[in-house]
Design a protein around this nucleic acid. Structure first.
Length: 636
RNA sequence: GCCAGGAUGGCGGAAUUGGUAGACGCAAGGGACUUAAAAUCCCUUGGGCUUUAUGCCCGUGCGGGUUCGACCCCCGCUCCUGGUACCA
């Protein structure tokens, strides 16, 4: 493999870095994890850009640091292998040239970089410290990245781990300028990267590090040696792809006029349909019919751009086009956007947490600023809520076609039907969690479906007796409690597994309920109706069939979601747990609005509880209404 | 390394966000029905102890703490997963 320099297209997402960062705060419908990932990805840092004049020359070495407070501790400078100064010196020094070559061929992958040995070489140049005027040697080092800041750093071994390791390897001086807050810290063992008070720093001695940052930056600014600087890790978005099947980048290269955009009325640029890729350069470059065109400005022969766009380009905005897919006057219909956008709920995998979801946010702001929709009504963000669903694992690895470890739900569907397959999948785990695939539970889902079906048959059973009022009230209470629980589960984090559990419970209760009289049958039918309506989103076919058979609904999916009858929830008595010093010792049956004293009297009248109170002094009692009574005692 | 999330029975997972830990299901064991099997139904199922009771002790990764009360909050660890940047 060879690394080549290519002329490619970028989109200046860095201009939106600040807004992309600050707007994350308003995305409270997003998981904090994803917002954190984006914050780290944008990687804003505040520091100082400082110029160190080169000894014996007119130019200066410019560096970026987040620790201007340690400026007085600089003992050497380090530049990246790709830095102009390193390249310049390599012209005269073959050894240096060889080292740069070596650096160029190493991997830039972070995992490899982390394990890489820190290597470097002196450039043979020196710079002048802007405050002390001391001469400081300049090194080239493999751990300095050309792509971040200025590609050069000031090295303060006493207060930076990398600089420390490097200084140790090459015997460079270590100069302490901060007194660590931790008195036990031994600088002979490791760098101190925390806060502290400045020492060995002349006029800045005695300042704490935070204050020193500002004061030293101000000093540099006054003396024209540097200024405060905000840096972002985020880089511009490389959108060029050397592929055939992508959106053509609508640009024309003209000998006379340079780079010219395709005229708006000529958009979109359409791909040639028949093309045999030959390998090598961008496939489109070889397609004469596509590539050759005329310049929109001067009319002379010109060539189209042969690269196509990154697919993130489309995934960043396609959902908006759904609001107005027949609209041909522009990319988007502002009116339709006002009605539909932004997206209420986005569901996707975490693997898109930074790239796709960051690009889409950026694109939204771009379209907003291009006036494609009304910013006030649509807002500044494309996705109001985000749910990141977990991955399905097989033997601990992410299921994927390339790994060949996929499981086709088809087998389950063929054997048990789509309803059972869906029920089983949703019941297995909460949606945001990764799940190790295991189909052992599918039988359980199948059995549940069968129980519901058989329960339905009971709706037509003959009346042959009477029901106890209290049993009916209890059953109705359970029915309406179930509505509350299932609704809650739907509304809080799509806890479908919990919703299904509650439905199974309701089904079990109905199964155990003996409907003998008219009243009992009415309650059974109510419970069945509620069960089927809430089950319908999970098992539409089964629910529909059951409801029809029981004569409840012709089309249950059209029936409204059931509502809790607050009255049904009421009960004459409740079980109140009684604790002694926080440990459960029994329970008492009391009215829901029981007072503390009443509950206390009741507890004392219960032998199993009273036993604990005999040889003790009651210190205090706490009543948690509807839940428990805690009696705090101490021995006599 | 750093950032985030997590650790609950044999297993997947619940716990109304500080109030009965283990819902619901799987697996396992026992029983009913059956000539038999399947299907179905019922019972048991965190560990231990005993006097078998509305019994006691222990128990939510480990060690402390706050609280009448902690899976939940605080401090200090261990391990796992994801993200990542040697970013100066």
């Amino acid at each position: 493999m060879v690394r080549k320099n290519l002329a490619q297209w970028f989109i200046r997402i860095t201009d939106y870095a600040e807004e992309l960062l600050t707007d994350l705060d308003q995305l409270d419908g997003w998981p904090e994890r994803v917002r954190d990932m984006q914050r780290n990805w944008i990687g804003r840092s505040t520091g100082a850009q400082v110029r160190f004049p080169l000894v014996g020359r007119d130019d200066a070495l410019e560096i970026y640091t987040t620790r201007p407070d340690t400026l007085m501790g600089v003992t050497y400078m380090a530049v990246a292998a790709g830095h102009p100064l390193a390249r310049e010196q390599a012209q005269y020094k073959p050894e240096l040239a060889a080292f740069l070559e070596e650096c160029a061929s190493i991997s830039t992958k972070e995992a490899d970089m982390a394990q890489m040995e820190k290597k470097g070489m002196p450039l043979g140049l020196e710079v002048i410290h802007p405050i002390t005027g001391q001469h400081i040697p300049v090194w080239v080092a493999n751990f300095v990245l050309m792509g971040y800041g200025t590609g050069a750093v000031m090295s303060v071994p006493a207060h930076d781990e990398r600089d420390y390791d490097f200084a140790r390897s090459y015997g460079l001086p270590i100069r302490q300028v901060i007194q660590p807050l931790d008195a036990n810290h031994d600088l002979a063992q490791a760098a101190w990267t925390g806060d502290g008070v400045l020492i060995n720093s002349g006029e800045f001695d005695g300042l704490d590090a935070q204050t020193a940052k500002k004061r030293i930056t101000a000093w540099l600014q006054q003396h024209g040696a540097g200024e405060e600087k905000v840096n972002y890790r985020l880089r511009d978005w490389l959108v060029s792809r050397q592929r055939y099947w992508g959106t053509p980048i609508p640009v024309i290269h003209c000998q006379a006029c340079g780079v010219v955009p395709v005229a708006e009325e000529d958009l979109p640029v359409v791909l040639p349909e028949s093309l045999q890729p030959t390998g090598g350069a961008s496939p489109l470059a070889c397609c004469e019919a596509f590539i050759n065109t005329t310049c929109p400005q001067c009319g002379q022969p010109a060539k189209r751009e042969a690269d196509t766009f990154d697919t993130f380009m489309e995934s960043s905005w396609y959902m908006n086009r759904y609001t107005c897919n027949h609209y041909d006057a522009a990319m988007l219909d502002a009116e339709a956007m006002q009605r539909w956008a932004p997206v209420d709920q986005y569901i996707g995998g975490v693997e898109h947490a930074v790239l796709h979801l960051l690009y889409a946010r950026f694109y939204h702001k771009l379209m907003r600023d291009a006036g494609l929709f009304d910013a006030k009504s649509v807002g500044d963000e494309p996705f109001v809520r985000l749910m990141t669903q977990g991955m399905v694992l097989k033997n601990g690895a992410k299921m994927s076609k390339s790994k060949g470890n996929t499981v086709d739900p088809r087998q389950i569907i063929d054997r048990y039907g789509a309803d059972t397959a869906r029920l089983f999948t949703l019941f297995a785990a909460p949606p945001e969690k990764d799940l190790e695939w295991n189909d052992e539970g599918v039988e359980g889902a199948w059995r549940f479906a069968g129980r519901v079906w058989r329960l339905t048959a009971r709706a037509d059973e003959a009346v042959h007796g009477e029901n106890n009022d209290e049993d009916c009230r209890r059953m109705r209470r359970l029915i309406h409690q179930a509505i509350g629980r299932v609704t809650h589960a739907f509304e809080h984090g799509f806890a479908f597994n919990v919703a299904i559990a509650a439905l199974m419970e309701l089904s079990n209760h109905l199964q155990g309920f003996a409907a003998e009289g008219e009243q009992g049958h009415a309650v059974l039918r109510e419970g069945l109706d509620v069960l089927l309506r809430m089950l319908a989103p999970f098992v539409p076919h089964l629910a529909c069939e059951c409801a029809e058979r029981a004569g409840l609904h012709d089309m249950i999916i059209l029936a409204p979601w059931p509502e809790v009858d607050e009255q049904a929830l009421e009960s004459d008595t409740i079980e109140l747990v009684v604790q002694i010093n926080g440990k459960k010792r029994g329970s008492i049956s009391v009215a829901p609005d029981v007072t503390r004293d009443q509950a206390m009297a009741r507890a004392q009248a219960t032998p199993a509880i009273a036993r604990w109170l005999e040889k003790a002094i009651i210190v205090k009692t706490i009543l948690v209404p509807g839940r428990l009574l805690n009696i705090v005692v101490k021995p006599q």
